[in-house]
Every structure is written in C-alpha cells, then in structure tokens.
Amino acid sequence: MPIRKREEEKIIEIKEERRKKERNFENLKEQLLSSSASERRWAARDLAQYKEASQILLERIKNEEDVSVIENILSSLSSIRDEVAVKGLIELLRSENAYLRNAVIETLKSMPEEVESYIEELIKSPESDLRIFAINIMESLRHPKVLKWLKEIIENDENVNVCSTALDLVAEVGTEDFLPSIEKIKEKFSDEPYVQFVADLAIRRINEGKNSP
C-alpha cells in the first residue's frame, strides 16, 4: 500500500477515534451548534442514542439550512420517537420551509403508531394545509380508523382541496360504503372538475372491486 494512502487512512482513524471519544451528550449538544455542517451532521446522528435529545434536535432543525444535517436530525428524531419528538415534528408541519415540511411528512409516515393519536386533532385543525398534511400522513397508517376519518372529511370538510386530497386516498383504499358519500361530494362540488374526476375514479375503482374492505 502506498505510504500516502496509509497516512490518509491513519488520519481518518484518528478523526473517527476522536469523534467516538467526544460522544457524550454535553459535547454533542455543543457540536450541534457548530459552524461546521459536518460536525453538526455527526452530532445530529450521534444524538439519536439519547432519549433526552428530542428537544434540542427540534430547536436546531428550525434554524438548520444544511439538507444533510436536517436529514440526520429527522432520522434521529424518528429513532427516538418519544412524545416530544412526535409533537415537535407535527408542529414543524407549519414551517415556511417547504423542504423541511415535506421531509417531516415523510418522517411522520415512518412512525405510524406514534402518529395515530394526533391525526384526529390534525384533521380538525382550522388550517386547511394541516388537514391536507394529515391526509398525506394517513397514507402510511394501517389503522382501522383511517376509513372513518376519510369519511368524516369528505362528508364534513368545506375546503375543496382537503376533500380532493381525501378523495385521492379514498380512490386507493375506499370501500363500497363510501359510495353514497362520494356521490354527495360530487354534488357539493359540482362545479369543480378535479373533484368530479377523482370522485369518478374512486367510484370506478370501488365498483371494480379493486379496494377490498
């Protein structure tokens, strides 16, 4: 092996060793605020082993601009998945940062059991965007209440985009007992071509028996 390559490998080993030594909670908290994105990334990753790290990870992600650090923070929060992490992630659905918002949706989809209890609250939110995100998250849930929630939305929600998003999912998972509600929503939004399109698609799929109860 060439000498230069051996030296490079040794430097990497030393760095790795130093990183391992510095892996205590207090140091990681400091490194999470480092000016070096690489240090923040490592700190975010290593904090996954500390249950008490949720809050500081959530604080950091609000101001983090480096995508790879954001990804590592989300991955650690997903790994910790305590109540603080889940509540904090749900709060981040209101972020102005579209990348973060969508990454948070994907993270919440990866923790269906922890998210279930918050869905009911989200679909009743006065903010239509949050109701839409709740439906996006529902895609990943295998909870018996998903069908009930979807029916509630298409029967009661007044926002056309919320209803359209729900209908998108109904077209995938809806069953025969959705048919009367779908007919009603077609009447309610009779002047909205997209609602008609997706409602017809849902009816067709249900009638073809593609979606079994």
Binding site: A98, Y99, R101, N102, A103, I105, E106, I132, F133, N136
Partner: peptide
C-alpha cells in the same frame, strides 16, 4: 406541485 417528498417544487 410544491409539496412533494425528496425535492419540493420551490427547490
């Protein structure tokens, strides 16, 4: 669209 996984519409 704006809200999409992996890379959003703005980005």
């Amino acid at each position: 669209d704006i809200n999409m996984p992996k890379l959003d519409g703005y980005s």
